[in-house]
């Protein structure tokens, strides 16, 4: 390698190091949201009655029926499938942990229980797409407002529930918009202030705060999970390969409740 090439390599390496340093310093200056967060399920329960969404009058009877059915021991099954909870239900009613990763230009939330529970929040300044495909988690863009992470989410599938419990919820039926402001109330307590606008089912924007806690001293990790596993059990194929087969236990291998 000639001298000019060597100098060029050195300059490039130095530039890359400076860039890495600048990025890591920028990330370090922001509040640390990274780690495994566990929902405050007691507060979720409290809000089932203390902070009821402003359901439209034609929706309210459906809700009242579901509340009565749950009280009678016949819960409506909001999650009677192995799809992800979707938005905003993931933030509202999950009983499981999620892991938040911060990388340059993006924040990623990885869920537990169903393998495709994931939110990608683009922090690189891009706008929402003009004609997005609708998904259960929607399209999220975010930015920092001081020490608060602001997330704007649209393009959510109409089938995604607005659920206040695992037994009470209504599909948003389309055109939902979710604005979230996430901030640390304490070093290990995350507040997600949600403002949910769903003109097909809500009379007005619904505001609720959901609380998540992390326990760094416990070194928690989220566990791999696929909801469909519940109907499967380890077995062998005709060649002796290890595969999953339908669970022969019948009712003993899966969960059954009377709908």
């Amino acid at each position: 390698m000639n001298t000019v090439a060597k100098k060029l390599v050195i300059v490039c390496c130095a530039a890359a190091l400076v860039e890495m340093f600048a990025v890591s310093r920028a990330l370090a200056e922001l509040p640390d949201f990274g780690g495994v967060w566990i929902p405050d399920v007691k507060d979720q329960k409290r809000q089932e009655t203390a902070n009821v969404p402003p359901w439209k009058p034609d929706i309210l009877p459906q809700i009242q029926h579901m509340v009565a059915e749950e009280k009678a021991g016949r819960p409506f099954l909001v999650l009677s499938h192995c799809l992800p909870h979707g938005m905003p239900s993931w933030m509202l009613i999950t009983h499981n942990a999620f892991e938040l990763l911060t990388t340059p230009g993006r924040i990623t939330m990885l869920g537990e229980v169903d393998g495709n529970r994931m939110r990608r929040i683009y922090m690189d300044g891009r706008p929402h797409p003009e004609d997005p495909d609708l998904t259960l988690h929607g399209h999220s863009i975010g930015h920092w407002d001081g020490e608060t992470l602001v997330i704007d989410t649209i393009a959510i599938a109409p089938q995604a529930y607005i659920a206040i419990s695992e037994a009470v919820g209504i599909p948003n039926n389309g055109d939902m918009h979710i604005l979230e402001r996430l901030h640390l109330a304490k070093p290990d307590v995350l507040y997600d202030d949600l403002e949910i606008t769903a003109p097909k089912v809500l009379d007005a924007a619904w505001k609720t705060t959901r609380i998540f806690r992390r326990y760094p001293e416990r070194h928690y990790e989220i566990t791999e999970g696929e909801c469909a596993q519940e109907d499967l059990t380890p077995g062998k194929d005709q060649f002796g390969n290890d595969i999953f087969v339908p669970n022969p236990q019948g009712p003993h291998g899966t969960v059954h409740t009377v709908k």
Partner: peptide
Amino acid sequence: AAAHHSNAA
């Protein structure tokens, strides 16, 4: 098969 559900039953 109820997947993930309320425990009201």
